[in-house]
Design a binder for these strands. Structure first.
Length: 421
RNA sequence: GUGGGAUUAGCUUAGUUGGUUAAAGCGCCAGUUUGUGGCACUGGAGAUCAUGGGUUCAAAUCUCAUAUUCCACCCCA
């Protein structure tokens, strides 16, 4: 009981790994159908990647990053999300001169130093995707439809999708000014935190859960109502494109994403089954990110979904995929003389793609049989003096107790044929 | 960073107003006359009662601190 996993981390045990594999496999398959290729990037980056990418005054960067100096004096941070690192990789690997669009998907762990809560961990898993090189709303819709298909494959058919537009830097600046004007008149009615937010990021005030703030901001002008013409057209275009694909959505004008790089389209897939966190999947457009990294004007859009939260959602919907059962064979030997033979047989079977086990713990014959029954093997084979004398072994199905004879000489070949032929 | 609940065997839990050797179920191991599993029966291993102080003749039980966990604020996937 002395050594424990660090706060906010957890072991994913063999008994639950099946769910993870299932979800990951479905995700990668769907991504591939949409032309997204997997990319793997480092777990840690120069701190600058995140401070410049995610944004220096976001909470994520300011108080939630695992940052340290390595032995060479470099400031390093464990990735709190995937997009910034991928943007860095995009530029570093010259993807800007490859044919657009560049579509990438990923499966990562991410790290945030937060207080642990339901659906919130310090090390967590994200599946995500990014599309670079197209500014039009059809990419946005395509990306969203990919998530939608993924959810459908898992058995989630109802729409959890909320969309919004937060405009470009120009309309946001204009809007910020008018929002500040609005808030200043009602400054006294705001909660403490929001008074601080008023200067740093007034947009966030709209997100505040404090009842006083909610009533104050109920009448506030909304960014999506003050978009410039181009941004408004883009938002309308997204809605049309989603409708073309029969994707249900709701417009939620209060969605404000907490990372600085977002522009125009933002969206979330939300649920009530993941604690107060709500967001299973979140994403949006980031048309200025690559440019901010010095990679030129390349628009982009992406999303990430929290695997822990997704699994929680599936659990509460009863969508737990059953492990598909594979053939596995247990060989019980009788007497010391056949132990080596049993072991050799196991290796032969394994070489031919058949999972096989024999005793490694010194169990008695009887105990070995019990073990084979409990451990979930599909077949049982007994090797003893009778078998070595006659050259014939019986294979018993542990499912229906049926038995079948095999010659020891061509056993492996015949089993291979039978199970996988 | 701020609040509230919890912590007893691998797991789920019981443990009276503080009182001798901390209890059960599941799981694990073994056996029920060494050649056929799941069931049943019998036995066994396994707990410094989260950790460290304090009160007391005596603490799993009262008290303080710390850690972890769960929930909420906050933030986000």
């Amino acid at each position: 009981m002395k050594l424990t996993a660090p706060k906010g981390t957890r072991d994913i045990l063999p008994s639950e790994i099946g769910k993870w594999h299932f979800v990951e496999k479905q995700f990668m398959e769907v991504c591939s159908l949409f032309g997204y290729d997997e990319i793997r990037i480092p777990t840690f980056e120069s701190t600058e990647v995140f401070s410049r990418g995610v944004g220096d005054d976001t909470d994520v960067v300011q108080k939630e990053m695992y940052t340290f100096d390595d032995k060479g004096g470099r400031s390093i941070s464990l990735r709190p999300e995937g997009t910034a690192g991928i943007a860095r990789s995009f530029i570093e690997n010259g993807m800007g001169s490859m044919p657009f669009p560049i579509k990438l998907c990923y499966n990562i762990t991410a790290f945030r130093y937060e207080n642990v809560q339901k659906g919130r961990y310090r090390e967590f898993h994200q599946l995500g995707a990014e599309a670079f090189g197209s500014a039009g709303p059809r990419v946005d819709a395509e990306l969203i439809s990919m998530i939608s298909l993924f959810f459908r494959r898992l058995g989630i058919y109802d729409s959890m999708l909320r969309i919004n537009s937060i405009g470009c830097p120009e309309c946001r600046k204009k809007y910020n000014d008018s929002l500040k004007g609005f808030l200043l008149e009602r400054y006294e009615g705001l909660c403490k935190v929001c008074r601080d937010r008023y200067e740093a990021n007034p947009l966030r005030v709209l997100d505040c859960k404090d009842e006083r703030c909610k009533t104050v901001t109920a009448e506030a002008p909304l960014l999506s109502d003050s978009l410039c013409n181009d941004c408004a057209d883009h938002f309308v275009g997204l809605q049309e494109a989603l409708s073309d694909l029969d994707i249900d959505y709701e417009i939620d004008k209060r969605i404000v994403r907490g990372l600085d790089y977002y522009t125009r389209t933002v969206f979330e897939f939300i649920s009530e089954n993941v604690g107060t966190q709500g967001t299973i999947c979140g994403g949006g457009r980031y048309d200025g990110l690559i440019d901010q990294f010095g990679g030129g004007c390349v628009p982009g859009i992406g999303f990430a979904l929290g695997v822990e939260r997704l699994l929680m959602e599936m659990d509460s919907r009863g969508l737990v995929p059953g492990e598909n059962e594979k053939v596995s064979l247990y060989i019980a030997s009788i007497g010391d003389e056949t132990v080596a033979l049993a072991h050799r047989l196991c290796f032969d079977l394994r070489k031919n793609g058949i999972a096989a086990e024999t005793d490694l713990t010194g169990r008695s014959f009887r105990a070995a049989l019990k073990y084979a029954g409990k451990a979930g093997f599909t077949h049982l084979m007994i090797i003893g003096k009778d078998e070595t004398d006659s050259g014939v072994v019986k294979l018993k199905s542990l499912k229906d107790a049926s038995e079948k004879d095999y010659d020891l000489t061509d056993l492996v070949e015949r089993l291979k044929e039978e199970f996988y032929g």
